[in-house]
């Protein structure tokens, strides 16, 4: 089963943070308060786009061919993700 990482508090709709990390092998547990990295705060579709973009060696032309979309459509999608990252970066500070 593919579980999605919850990002928003279902009670107050605030952005969630990481409080506990766990090692499955040695059962070590780390407790603290950590912000989620910007990448993990993006929508799943956007995260997949970024991974595909890296796999395509950062070539929008290859991305466009793989996605069967036009070059400007793919470039606009990348621009939207950059804009989201910039917003998250500002909000995170």
């Amino acid at each position: 089963m593919n579980k999605n990482l919850p990002l928003i508090c279902p009670s107050c709709e605030n952005l969630l943070k990481v409080k506990q990390l766990h090692c499955e092998q040695c059962e070590t547990e780390i407790t603290g308060l950590y912000s989620l990295p910007i990448m993990s705060r993006l929508a799943m579709d956007d995260q997949k786009f970024i991974l595909d973009f890296i796999k395509a060696s950062g070539s929008l032309k290859v991305m466009a061919q793989n996605m069967k979309l036009s070059y400007p459509t793919v470039r606009n999608r990348l621009d939207d993700i950059i804009s989201s990252i910039n917003k998250l970066g500002k909000n995170g500070q």
Partner: peptide, 11 residues
């Protein structure tokens, strides 16, 4: 159609 066609192909 420009979601799928642009550039030299559309020209």
């Amino acid at each position: 159609p420009f979601i799928r066609i642009a550039g030299y192909k559309s020209l």
